[in-house]
């Protein structure tokens, strides 16, 4: 399979590369771009990025595996990130995470059978004042990739949020 950037991604790629005095420095933003284009960072995508930037593939692999935000395998449409770090630890994060594991029937970093949700326990989301903090990103809505609900302080509210997203996906949105 030969990969290629779409026209808009190609334009974005050129803009990114122009910001740096050498091409390797563009690697992190280009991997983000590639993840948007090709869904996740497979070995083929690493090879493609390496060619685009003129960087040895092994270096690209080293970087892609060092950082947690690059998905090495497909993930669900909604990435549900639950913080359990200190402020959230105190205000119900671990309980929400345990509840969601049961409700969605997945382990940490697992994806539901319908490919809708990937659940992940994450570190502090810099939203400690609204803890427990949950961040959800939607692959289909990159313009507003985050709906961040403040004060999700009870499990029924978490359930309602998940059900709402499920309905949204069913409705074709």
């Amino acid at each position: 399979m030969t990969l290629a950037f779409s026209q808009s991604a190609r334009q974005r790629f050129d803009e990114i590369v122009a910001r740096y005095p050498n091409r390797q420095a563009a690697l992190l933003p280009v991997l983000h771009l590639a993840q948007q284009e090709f869904d996740h960072i497979s070995p083929e995508v690493m090879q493609f990025v390496a060619e685009q930037l003129g960087v040895p593939p092994v270096k690209v692999q080293h970087v892609a595996t060092f950082y947690t935000m690059y998905n090495k395998k497909p993930v669900g449409r909604f990435h549900v990130q639950v913080c359990t770090n200190i402020a959230c630890h105190l205000t119900g994060g671990p309980e929400i995470f345990a509840h969601l594991k049961k409700k969605l029937g997945v382990a940490n970093k697992g994806t539901t059978a319908d490919d809708l949700f990937t659940l992940e326990e994450v570190e502090c989301l810099a939203a400690c004042g609204y803890s427990p903090a949950i961040q959800i990103t939607d692959k289909k809505d990159r313009e507003t990739p985050i709906f961040f609900r403040e004060n999700l302080d009870s499990l029924p509210k978490v359930d309602a949020l998940i059900d709402e997203l499920r309905a949204k996906a069913k409705g074709g949105a």
């Binding site: 770090n85 200190i86 502090c124 939203a127």
Partner: peptide, 11 residues
């Protein structure tokens, strides 16, 4: 890179 757990000011 605001990531020190408990910190949410730079955001």
């Amino acid at each position: 890179d605001e990531g020190e757990p408990g910190t949410f000011k730079d955001r």
